[in-house]
């Protein structure tokens, strides 16, 4: 390649990357700028630059925390509910799921002609069903048990939805850890539970992070079950935001709440990310 070709190539490369970045980032910028607009700023044609094109206002943000009686949308309640429901359900799913996955990876199970792989597949097959089909049985089930419109009910449903993901991800990870590590730990002085928590699990940290992220993202941003299984006593964030979208849309508050709602995911992703890239297992498996 000569100089001109190289320039053309890198020009195309960066051009494509910039285009894609705009595509990804623009909605956030739009939401950010909209969240500082007032009624006039939104309806008076497309404007982007604060102070020059529109007068910024904090109305969108302050409405988030104001009571409904004073024209606000009082997001603290749903926010807290969403945090509790998604963290608790993710925690339970991770705890149960890693144990189940470890069992499936290390022990042989038989149920008639079915073995470990069938059981693992059975776990993930629960997610084949579209949520719409599950919603009605869950609704009836929760109503029957008196758990409809409660945190506990939502947590239970989310755990059921998250478990397959955890099991699926973690079985694969545990299978990459040689069983000699368990055995070495057992001989060294661990009981099976200690061998699991002190030796095997730390070596599956990247898998645990992937599973945790998937769980939190799903449970935090799920709209469907939140909408159908809770309505008055418990309100989760996604339906609350969507309901804003009713007769007269407060675009500024909608934007502000959207930004606030992705914040925990961003924080959690940053915290967990550093555990992702660790090639600890290199050199353990037979060469």
């Amino acid at each position: 390649m000569n100089g001109a070709m190289v320039n053309l190539y890198s020009g195309l490369k960066y051009g494509a990357l910039i285009l894609w970045s705009v595509f990804v980032i623009a909605p956030f910028l739009w939401a950010l700028s909209t969240s500082f607009k007032s009624d006039n700023g939104v309806t008076g044609g497309a404007t982007y630059i604060p102070f020059l094109e529109y007068e910024p206002s904090l109305e969108g943000w302050s409405a988030l925390f104001r009571d409904t009686s004073s024209g606000g949308i009082s997001m603290q309640g749903p926010y807290l509910s969403s945090l509790v429901v998604s963290l608790v359900s993710s925690g339970i799913a991770l705890f149960l799921g890693t144990l189940a996955a470890y069992g499936l990876s290390r022990f042989t199970f038989r149920a008639g002609p079915l073995g470990n792989n069938d059981i693992t597949f059975f776990f993930i097959s629960q997610r084949i069903m579209p949520p719409a089909i599950l919603a009605i049985p869950y609704f009836l089930l929760l109503r029957f048990t008196g758990l409809l419109d409660t945190h506990v009910g939502l947590i239970l449903v989310y755990v059921a939805m998250l478990l397959p993901i955890v099991v699926w991800v973690m079985v694969d990870f545990f299978n990459t850890v040689p069983i000699e590590l368990d055995e070495a730990a057992l001989i060294d002085g661990c009981n099976p539970i200690q061998a699991f928590y002190r030796i095997i699990l730390p070596n599956c940290a990247p898998g645990l992070v992937v599973a945790a992220l998937l769980c939190i993202i799903f449970s935090w941003s799920d709209f469907f079950f939140a909408m159908t299984l809770s309505f008055a006593k418990v309100q989760l964030l996604p339906p609350t935001i969507v309901i804003l979208n009713s007769n007269k849309v407060p675009w500024w508050s909608l934007s502000a709440s959207a930004l606030v709602s992705v914040l925990p995911l961003v924080i959690i992703a940053f915290v967990l990310e550093r555990y992702l890239a660790r090639g600890n297992l290199a050199g353990v498996i037979r060469e």
Partner: peptide, 8 residues
């Protein structure tokens, strides 16, 4: 062990 099985 053959695979040494050191804790990674």
């Amino acid at each position: 062990f053959q695979s040494h099985a050191l804790y990674p």
